[in-house]
Design a protein around this nucleic acid. Structure first.
Lengths: 146, 146
DNA sequence: GAAGAAATGCAACTCAGTTGCATTTACTTC
DNA sequence: GAAGTAAATGCAACTGAGTTGCATTTCTTC
């Protein structure tokens, strides 16, 4: 999402040492527009370095826990991972193609995810909000045969 | 969600025969406030009738396909099922407690899910929208020890 | 460079959901 | 009401994503 981000610095800024694998995982997520499944991240990272499946899951957990990365539900059984919202990359809704599984980010301005807007009963403590639009992407829409 | 609903009629209205299992599954979902995991539905239905796990999944798929029921992501690895939105039960956002897994419906008025509001590029075809708030429910909030 | 801690790898496991096929139940048609 | 067909359900085995426990490697710090 951002080539100006220095992922090593980002890792250290949250108290994680920047190992080659962590940096590559975070960079893969960060430099991709849209969000990725673990299998896709694995494939991309493995073009550069060997990495075990379990290590990837552990790194993803760490990055989510440190709030560098957010885990999203696509409505299917596989999580997607994308950079967490920051002042430079504000939080935003996602579009999910129910046909091909593509999941992409929507313009933050189009559907503002501002928790202050919602007047839910304050009995529970809200930590985050996830908005997903399901439908058909441009490609699947124009090739209904696939 | 609604005791006035006649689930047998509802099933037939979408072209499904109303078998005892289907009616019980739909009734279990419909009469519960909030949304349910398959395991919870299984447990409740089994108090009344014997049913196989696979049969439940197949019935759930059918009900979702016929748009009587909607499948929701809780952000964990298990789907939740609730009555689909109708004019009488409008679509609404859900709250998910990240501690105990409880998932409940929010007042439709509090976060209106009106697709017409969002000005996303019309290149893709949007079919539905899912909004989930994650946080701590009242109970987990007041018993942080559990 | 030795000791301890952190990171990674490997094998086996779990859990939700799915598939293929057998069996039962319901629905015609005679 | 029996025979034949289709629909619904059951059962066992499988799949795929993610997890766990423990061994091995790599990094720190003295």
């Amino acid at each position: 999402m951002c080539d100006q981000c220095d992922y090593g610095t980002l890792l250290r800024s949250v108290g994680l040492s920047d190992t080659p694998r962590r940096e590559l995982v975070l960079g893969t997520i960060g430099n991709h527009q849209g969000v990725l499944r673990p299998s896709e991240i694995l494939e991309k990272v493995r073009r550069r370095i060997s990495i075990n499946r379990v290590t990837l899951y552990r790194i993803l957990d760490l990055l989510v826990q440190k709030k560098l990365v957010q885990r999203l539900s696509a409505g299917d059984r596989t999580f997607r991972y994308g950079l967490a919202g920051t002042s430079r990359h504000p939080d935003h809704a996602h579009f999910h193609c129910v046909h091909c599984g593509l999941m992409e980010c929507l313009d933050p301005a189009s559907i503002p995810l501002d928790l202050r807007q919602s007047q839910h009963p304050q009995l529970m403590k809200i930590e985050r909000m996830e908005v997903r639009l399901d439908g058909l992407c441009q490609t699947c829409r124009s090739h209904p045969d696939v």
